[in-house]
Design a binder for these strands. Structure first.
Lengths: 377, 377
DNA sequence: TCCACTTAAGCAACGCTGTTGCCAAAGTGC
DNA sequence: GCACTTTGGCAACAGCGTTGCTTAAGTGGA
């Protein structure tokens, strides 16, 4: 529980904390739903407390009863379910050459997707106009808005490649596009759309999206290999951004002291070695380099899973997964660990980034904001 | 706030959370103390709530009034202070060849220190007897116990080199000492001493000790270079242990693909390169290798400080700090960052480990347990 | 068909949290 | 000596989860 950034907690904060917890369990339970008593068991609260909390959530329209379970000798349990269309969020993925926009409901289901051509090198006003247009478009799409009331959109999450500050929503020097330096994207986009906006790095958004999938581990790393190489880290169930949203600079980790020069000015960076091998068609070597970096990460942070993604990986999924897994398994064997950390891929090409961007807005509702939590309205 | 591992919070949990928060602020304030209104400002609670909370803490003997500040035009503020001798903890550092035991008070001040010879390769019962003897010895030392009541010792924190599981208190294969494999050290030591016991890796203990010093950053890494090379990570103000207390395996990070073989069976590990250079007297090269690993870590986790420690570093402090700093500053310059992450040393040789071990017991009182929190009595 | 039993879920009273409104205490400065 | 400022506690209060009890809604044996 966190009461803004000070830490002191009062009764409203307590109520919000427990409501978020229940809401998160409802989200994870999905369409199948979950009974009040299971909620009580998972939260450690008394059944009566869960009854009160779920009653409030039902009154707010966020939860609903959905059938009953089979009796086990007494009154059957009533199943509760999240109401997916109680709220929506827009997710934007601003990549170098295209913009992907999705509309996600409260359950995390993508109900609309659109892609637009984009030149991230164009003037800011032009990019902003495209983004605002994309937001309007996906808001109008998806399932027909109910006749009673307009759909409630909580806000817009925007994910981009460059370094930026998540807290202030200000961009730093996006590689190759000097016009974005110190640009207050969050506030500008909020003004253009009239909605609250959250910005974050593309890899962080993707990692958050994966973390909110059911059965996600508490600690894992998402490695994104596209035109560059970056990582999103989930530690202790929450996104780790670091003090300056700089965490995840995975591409320029040195894995070959005094190795070949990299575009960043350093030598022996993973990105340089990996992309060079991939460029000359040696996927096995690219995977081996990536695996060495992944194994470093696994050892340093003791994570439970490595997820690979991005266009370059998508082109040779089996080779990359196999190559990375081989390095990790070999190192696990040396340490005498029985079960090596699993390596998987995040399907869907670049879509996980846009979907994760939408979760930047929705995650605070479920107490999954990560470090400094956003408040609910 | 965390109510055991379930997450649900009730009123006692709320009370405990706020009390811990206030207690932590009192601890950080040290002998200088802190006024009620400052506590209110830092916690975000109302002054009245702080009055109630501090009244309870005073009734329990954990806090006391200590003088007044100068008036600013009205009634002067009353200064509150932690009562250091309200409780103590024993910290044990079980190294390969010696055992260091300290007695720390609530404020973190070491009031007694003793070292004993130890052979970590000896049978478990022998090592345990030495440890229990060390605990009895430091409990009897320090400032004279007040005549009113015996000193209250909260428990024993034990730090050791090998891999282990912090949650269960069971050791894994401590390098070179197969008899410790699967040994339930926590329970065994608890039985021998009659006190609650917490065990953790030496580097984690040291990092925790540093994290509890006043003005410590929320994110930093402690790199320990002794007979081996390990790391303790503090992320978001809390110790990051990972799911299996395995985090901090820094020594066997690959920084030279296909480099020289390491004792672990791998190639190009930092530890092998670093210790090899140190062994042949090339401190500059050892520092450069260590710096490369440290820079990787800084980039990956976006931490605020790197702290060096351990016997090998202590022998050439300036050279190591300078060498590591040079690598980190060079990389920061390439990324266009104005202020590079500072590099410092943890003085006192190996003592920070034993002092940090005592903090393993005290930290939960201040809500600084890290991830899964221990409860107060 | 009926009745005893089991399990689920809500109502009412309660203890305790931090909050609010108010007032006494303890200074400064004219 | 008086007006003013600031601190900090007392008392009443709203609201949280908890406890004790009741009602709802099933199963299963006589």
């Amino acid at each position: 529980m966190s009461n803004s950034r000070t830490g002191g907690a009062n009764l409203p904060a307590l109520r919000h904390h427990n409501a978020s917890l229940v809401l998160d369990l409802l989200r994870v339970a999905g369409e199948q739903g979950i009974s009040r008593l299971e909620l009580a068991e998972h939260t450690g609260l008394t059944p009566q407390a869960v009854s009160k909390i779920t009653a409030r959530l039902r009154a707010e329209g966020l939860a609903a009863e959905a059938g009953r379970l089979a009796s086990t000798g007494g009154k059957p349990r009533t199943v509760l379910r999240l109401v997916p269309d109680a709220g929506y969020a827009v997710g934007l993925h601003l990549d170098r050459d295209e913009l992907t926009a999705v509309l996600a409901d409260l359950a995390g289901t993508t109900v609309a997707t659109r892609t637009f051509p984009l030149d991230l090198g164009a003037p800011a006003t032009e990019v902003l106009a495209t983004a605002a247009h994309a937001v309007r478009t996906v808001r109008a799409e998806g399932p027909q808005a109910t006749c009673t009331a307009a759909r409630h959109v909580f806000g817009v999450g925007a994910a981009l490649p460059g370094p930026l500050d998540h807290r202030s929503g200000v961009l730093h020097r996006v590689t190759g596009f000097p016009q974005w330096d110190r640009y207050p994207l969050r506030d500008a986009l909020a003004e253009h759309t009239g909605l609250p906006v959250v910005v974050d790095k593309d890899t962080n958004a993707a990692a958050l999206g994966l973390a909110l999938r059911d059965r996600a581990e508490a600690d894992f790393a998402y490695l994104h290999l596209g035109t560059g190489l970056g990582a999103g880290l989930v530690l202790g169930g929450a996104l780790h951004r670091g003090a300056r949203t700089g965490a995840g600079e995975f591409g320029h980790q040195t894995v070959q002291l005094d190795g070949p020069p990299c575009g960043c000015g350093g030598r022996g960076c993973i990105e340089a070695l990996c992309l060079e091998a991939a460029a000359r068609g040696d996927v096995a070597e690219a995977a081996r380099v990536l695996g060495a970096g992944a194994a470093n990460l696994v050892g340093l942070l003791d994570i439970d899973r490595v997820v690979l993604g991005g266009r370059t990986v998508a082109a040779h999924e089996a080779a990359y997964v196999g190559g990375v897994r081989a390095v990790i398994e070999e190192r696990a064997r040396r340490e005498g660990v029985t079960a090596a950390v699993p390596v998987t891929v995040a399907g869907g090409g670049d879509r996980p980034v846009a979907e994760g961007a939408a979760q930047l807005v929705l995650a605070p509702l479920f107490g999954r904001a990560g470090e400094d939590g956003g408040e609910r309205d």
